[in-house]
Amino acid sequence: MTLLKPLVAATAALCLPAAASAHFLLQYTTDAMIARPGDVPVKLIFWHPFENGQVMDLARPREFFVVHRGERTDLMDGLAPITFEGAENAGAAFRGTVPVKRSGDYVLVTVPEPYFEETEDIYIQQLTKVVLNRNGLPTDWAEPVGLPVEILPLNKPYNVLAGSTFTGRVMAEGAPVAGAEIEIEYMAAEPDMDSARATDPTASPPPGGAVVALSDANGYFTFGIPRAGYWGFAALGAGPVTEHDGKELSQDAVLWIRAWDME
């Protein structure tokens, strides 16, 4: 991927009153910037982290891997089931590790099994990415990892400044997705890595429902980042697969970024 030209048009974020709180698959690590080499703990949780809402049971993923300097490493053997407790309920989740040794980017990817959402009578499959970095050397963050649908960041996703903007591009099978609906989630509650419980939320969701942006004709969207922390972007139903077990499937692309306050 080549980052050639600045965006001249992108849709602003808006709140849709009819939108419900967002489902988001987390690949949570305490830090996105890794100071020392070693195995970095990660937890896979299907949750509503903005309001510390419902935890959905996560089945064992189809794929769990990391890409570093263009090389893919399978991490499935290191996954172990856990129970994660949110404020409303507990649900099945997983813990694993990411081997971080050399300097550079580590693009962590989860391809989950479709989840059946009874209230909507549809399946949801969130193909999820987060980028970790060691020693500030950028290597892989802007490159696709070969998913059927994914969000390609145009800003380094692990050191976005609060108060600035983040721009992504929704791509499905190598082509931009125009008019994709992107739900935006702040991780106001975070998983406690020691107890497998949720921390108390540090912010409340805005009135009017989920925060949503739309991609433009070339698949781009831009969002102003109001505060530091983890932010998630989910391009809903942007993937090429639309059915599973005879029911509608929303194949979503999810990308998590880390924003920081300037000190």
Rank of each mutant, 00 (worst) to 15 (best):
V100M: 06
V211A: 12
K43M: 11
T139D: 06
E63D: 08
A87W: 05
V145Q: 08
T202R: 11
N159K: 06
P207K: 13
E88Q: 09
E113A: 09
A198R: 13
G232I: 04
V241R: 08
S215C: 05
D77Q: 11
K156V: 09
P176L: 10
A234M: 09
L161Q: 15
I124L: 11
P81Y: 14
P81V: 13
L79A: 05
T139F: 08
Y230S: 15
P226S: 09
E183S: 09
E143F: 10
T30S: 13
V211Q: 13
V98Q: 06
L44C: 08
V149A: 02
Q126H: 05
P138D: 00
P148L: 07
V100S: 10
N89Y: 01
T73Y: 01
F223G: 05
A19M: 11
E243D: 08
M262W: 15
T119E: 05
A35R: 12
T110E: 11
D140S: 10
W47V: 04
A13P: 02
E183R: 06
F223R: 03
V8G: 14
Y230M: 15
S250M: 13
H23G: 05
V40S: 06
S250T: 04
V100K: 05
M171V: 15
L44K: 07
R227A: 12
A189F: 06
V145G: 09
I151G: 15
P37R: 06
L14K: 07
P207A: 13
P176Y: 06
A18H: 08
P207L: 11
D74I: 04
E71G: 00
R60Q: 06
G229V: 03
N133R: 07
F94K: 05
A178Y: 06
S215K: 08
E120T: 14
F116E: 03
Y158G: 03
F233A: 13
G146D: 03
D39A: 12
V107Q: 07
K43Q: 14
T29D: 01
D121T: 03
E120P: 00
P49Q: 10
A19N: 14
G146P: 10
A203K: 15
T242N: 03
P144K: 12
S164M: 09
S103I: 00
A203N: 12
A92I: 03
P61C: 05
R60I: 04
T29G: 06
V145A: 12
